[in-house]
């Protein structure tokens, strides 16, 4: 990867070019498969065939059924823990240079998080009965 600056002042993130290309190719594979399927497959729809699957019966009621609020709690906890993980990654990479200071700092952070974690556990957010 020799070209970082094709012109003075014009930064081209060439390391990320293959990423853009692979995303392009994989979406072409996905869409291409759909197009080929569109060209070769038969199409004989009738009303009963187009029902959503409900074990052979005509569907009853609204398909968007009310669901357990636990799913929201899991989603919120995910945000909390994922943000924490995002703090951990750069810390882990730079740990060699941070030394004892970095260790103590991160332990404080983990302890704060742990308090919240124990609170959530005691509140029963992880129980699915």
């Amino acid at each position: 990867m020799c070209i970082k600056y094709a012109m003075p002042g014009t930064y081209i993130p060439i390391n990320y070019l293959p990423v853009a290309i692979i995303m392009l190719i994989s979406s072409l594979i996905g869409l291409g498969a759909l197009v080929v399927g569109l060209l070769v497959r038969p199409r004989r729809p009738y009303a009963q065939k187009l029902y959503p699957y409900e074990s052979g019966n005509p569907p009853i009621g609204d398909p968007r059924v009310p669901f357990n609020v636990k799913f929201y709690i899991v989603a919120m906890l995910f945000v909390v823990f994922d943000v924490e993980a995002v703090f951990l990654y750069p810390w882990a990479v730079a740990y060699g240079q941070l030394g004892i200071f970095g260790f103590v700092e991160m332990m404080l952070f983990i302890v704060v998080l742990l308090v919240g974690y124990i609170y959530v556990w005691k509140k029963g957010a992880f129980n699915w009965e």
């Binding site: 692979i22 995303m23 190719i25 594979i29 569109l38 199409r43 065939k49 187009l50």
Partner: peptide, 29 residues
Amino acid sequence: FFKEDIIPSSADKPIFYIAPVIGVVAAIS
């Protein structure tokens, strides 16, 4: 490829079409 494509008549069509493509792009990339 040769199987008939059955989409429920009540389905949310654009999202229904795009979802498997998102899955493939995310996995292969």
